[in-house]
Amino acid sequence: MKLIVKVFGKISEEIGESEFMIEKSDNIASLKSEINTIYPQLKDLKFAIAVNKKLSTDSDKIPEGAEIALLPPFSGG
């Protein structure tokens, strides 16, 4: 079962897509390492992660069919 990952800002620019599919991980921490394996260029970027449009922390579990979002900070004004 794959998960959909929506990406924003610099992350979208780095990978050239606004979303991608990824194998399901059990929690956020393992999802992060999976993402870093596929897209090593994201390794040094800071971003928040949302699961089903809710901000999450590393220990949060990821339910079946969840929608993930990678949310980098913006500073421009």
Binding site: G9, K10, D44, L45, K46, A48, L55, L71, P72, P73, F74, S75, G76, G77
Partner: peptide, 26 residues
């Protein structure tokens, strides 16, 4: 800080001067 407890590194996120922006969007 609840969203971004750690700031991005100095050159990770360019501002409008560096990244450009179309006038109407701001």
């Amino acid at each position: 800080r609840d969203i971004y407890p750690i700031p991005p590194s100095a050159h990770e996120v360019p501002n409008c001067n560096e990244a450009g922006v179309l006038g109407v969007f701001p």
